[in-house]
Simulated assay, not measured.
Amino acid sequence: MARRRSRGGDAAIWPGFVDGLSSLILVLMVVLSLFVVAQFYLGEELTQKDTELNSLRAQIAKLAEDLGLARADKTRLELRIATLEDELAEGEARIAQLTEELAVAGSAIAASAEELEAEKALTEEQASEIATLNAQLAALRKQLASLQEALEAAEAKDLEQQAQIENLSTRLNAALARKVQELAEVRSRFFEALREALGDRDDIRVVGDRFVFESDVLFGSCSASLSAQGRIELKKLADVLLEIRGQIPSEIAWILRVDGHADQEPLGPACRLLYDSNWHLSAERAISVVQYLESQGVPPKRLVAAGFGEHQPLVPGRDPASLAINRRIEFKLTER
């Protein structure tokens, strides 16, 4: 009987325990739900608060900037006020000075009659001086006007002279061009006649505006004395030059320039006994040609001799053919 009651009591307790536990769990779930909801609303409120806080921070920064500007304006205003105070002090000092000067002027006005007469005489003297200065100024203005007229006349004359100079320059350029053209025509006739007189020879050629003789045609080795064949060839050149001399206009101061050139080889021992360098050899050969042309009737004032040594070769190279070409006498008909 006792066991049955015990079992029956346990069976009666268990449902109540389960109900209590269920109720507790239900309460906990309700509490947790309320906590979650509260957390949600609290998060929303915190987000809103953060937004408001950022806005307040921005406002504070703006207010701080405005405060800085206000302080700067305050500093400028304080400086301005100080400046104005200084100016006010200067103005007051100036007023005091003017008051003192006014008092002095009042004293001067109250001076004696003699002083007034003296001041009147001084005023009349100043008026006379001013009148004299005005007269001088009028005279100076008159002189200035005269000088201006003279300047304008000089400028007009200068323009006229400038036009005349330009006209003369144009005419001079035209005359020079005609002379150059005439000399070019004479040179062309000279070259043509000389080419016909000399015939077709490989050792005599035209290079630009120059007639070129190889030195071997006119001179022996290491010699500045004309060979017999050289005299024959130069006689042809002199005859052509004398023939066309009358065709050259008298106003053209023409000359025949004779240029001596040596090859690039240094002088040998035997040649150095006669000439110090290729400069001397080339110059002596040019002088020999000029002297021979003079002996043939060419006026000496129309002849010029120059030596260039080995420094202006016609062709590069040191082979015998190149050396023979560079060892030469050049003739150039030009204007002095």
Rank of each mutant, 00 (worst) to 15 (best):
Val180Asn: 14
Ser188Gly: 01
Arg171Glu: 09
Lys179Ala: 09
Asn173Ile: 08
Glu155Gln: 15
Leu147Asn: 00
Gly199Asn: 01
Ala150Gly: 10
Ile165Lys: 10
Arg195Gly: 11
Gln148Thr: 01
Leu159Trp: 06
Ala138Ile: 05
Gln136Met: 13
Leu147Ser: 05
Val186Met: 13
Arg187Asn: 14
Leu183Val: 09
Gly199Arg: 04
Asp200Leu: 04
Gln164Lys: 09
Ser146Lys: 02
Glu185Asn: 11
Gln143Met: 05
Asn173Glu: 15
Ala154His: 05
Val180Pro: 02
Glu149Arg: 08
Ala135Arg: 13
Leu168Gly: 08
Leu133Gln: 08
Ala197Asn: 02
Ala145Phe: 00
Ser169Arg: 15
Ala193Leu: 15
Glu160Ser: 06
Ser146His: 02
Glu155Phe: 05
Leu144Arg: 09
Gln181Asp: 14
Glu166Asn: 14
Val186Ala: 15
Leu147Glu: 07
Glu160Gly: 09
Asp200Cys: 01
Ala139Pro: 00
Ala138Trp: 02
Gln164Gly: 02
Glu152Ala: 04
Arg171Pro: 00
Lys179Leu: 05
Gln148Cys: 05
Ile165Met: 10
Leu194Arg: 03
Asp202Trp: 06
Phe191Glu: 04
Thr132Gln: 11
Asn134Phe: 07
Leu183Phe: 00
Glu149Trp: 01
Ala131Ser: 02
Glu152Cys: 01
Leu137Gln: 09
Leu183Lys: 06
Ser146Met: 03
Ala153Gln: 07
Gln148Tyr: 04
Leu144Val: 03
Ile204Ser: 06
Val186Ile: 13
Leu183Glu: 00
Ile204Pro: 01
Leu198Asp: 02
Ser188Trp: 05
Leu183Ile: 00
Ala156Arg: 05
Glu149Leu: 04
Glu182Thr: 04
Arg201Lys: 14
Gln148Glu: 13
Leu176His: 12
Leu151Ser: 04
Glu160Ala: 15
Asn173Pro: 00
Asn134Ser: 13
Leu140Gln: 03
Val186Gly: 11
Leu140Asp: 05
Ile165Phe: 07
Ala177Ile: 05
Glu185Ala: 03
Ser188Gln: 13
Leu194Met: 12
Leu183Met: 14
Leu198Val: 02
Leu140Thr: 03
Lys142Gln: 12
Gln181Met: 03
Ala175Thr: 11
Ala139Asp: 08
Glu149Lys: 15
Glu196Asn: 13
Lys157Leu: 08
Asp200Pro: 05
Glu166Gln: 14
Glu155Ser: 08
Ala135Gln: 10
Arg171Asp: 06
Arg178Lys: 15
Leu172Glu: 02
Ala163Gly: 12
Leu183Pro: 01
Leu198Gln: 08
Ala197His: 02
Glu155Leu: 04
Leu144Met: 08
Phe190Glu: 00
Ala153Arg: 12
Gln164Glu: 10
Arg189Tyr: 03
Leu151Asp: 03
Ala153Asn: 08
Leu198Trp: 02
Ala193Lys: 14
Leu176Met: 10
Leu168Asp: 14
Glu155Asp: 11
Leu133Met: 07
Gln164Val: 10
Gln136Tyr: 03
Leu194His: 01
Ala174Phe: 13
Ala145Ile: 00
Val180Tyr: 14
Leu147Phe: 04
Gln181Ala: 12
Ala138Gln: 11
Leu194Thr: 15
Phe190Tyr: 10
Leu176Ser: 03
Glu152Gln: 05
Gln161Leu: 11
